[in-house]
Design a protein around this nucleic acid. Structure first.
Lengths: 121, 121
DNA sequence: AATTTATTTAGCTAATTTGCTAAATTGATT
DNA sequence: AATCAATTTAGCAAATTAGCTAAATAAATT
């Protein structure tokens, strides 16, 4: 389960336009540079991409994008795996699914309480 | 449906510890109960969540909390209703539910695509 | 060994955010 | 009308964030 600190870190990470777009595109495969250029049989990471490829989609300097990616990684939103001298970026669906669950639970609990109040009518 | 701009605004709003805690407590009823407009007893209103009540839970000055609340309201996370000279704060479950759905959809789409890729093995 | 490629780190500036206090506003009460 | 209570606005300072370029690092290629 995500603690408060982790959640805030995630929100902070996604509360910046550039980082949000990176996150979104990494998740939806918007960059479409897959790791499987050699062998499809290998344990390939679908929709993986590298730092330079992502940076090409923005008007910001490479180091800026690198720092943004680090923040997304620190928030556990994406995974970065070094392979030779490239770093492959993939989404971390587990953490996002957990976040979604948190929200749903929160809303469900709230509506339950509201319903309870409404019973007095 | 939430557009990108709205989503970023929500994340920005929740990416600050104070605002996140306010949001969390407003949702879980940590401060007090919401206004029950249907009930004729106006006594309830005296205990409902208002700006001052929330501010009492923090070591920050009242105007600071007021500004944080404005940001949460602008992000559509909470509702603020003026009644006489008090402002009552309630959560906005719809927007949070929508956000949860966005995440779930994103994850679902991702896992679908991954599965498709794995089929080539 | 030297060069190239991919990425990060360092150090800097500008912009934004977050806090404060004081003053203004709005509605209720005396 | 004067005062009180709840809240916001204004204006300011400190802290943080987001951008840049230049330099450093690490692995691959020549």
């Amino acid at each position: 389960m995500l603690n408060v600190e982790q959640k805030i870190k995630i929100f902070k990470a996604l509360g910046n336009e550039t980082r949000f777009l990176i996150f979104k595109n990494v998740f939806t495969g918007g960059y479409a540079c897959s790791i499987d250029e050699k062998k499809p049989k290998e344990d390939i990471i679908a929709q993986a991409t590298c730092v330079t490829t992502i940076a090409e989609h923005f008007d910001f300097a490479l180091p800026t994008i690198s720092r943004h990616l680090k923040e997304l990684k620190d928030a556990n939103i994406i995974k970065m795996t070094k392979k030779s001298n490239k770093i492959y970026i993939e989404p971390n669906p587990e953490i996002i699914q957990e976040l979604a669950s948190c929200f749903t639970t929160l809303v469900d609990n709230y509506t339950d309480t509201t319903f309870q109040f409404d019973n007095t009518k």
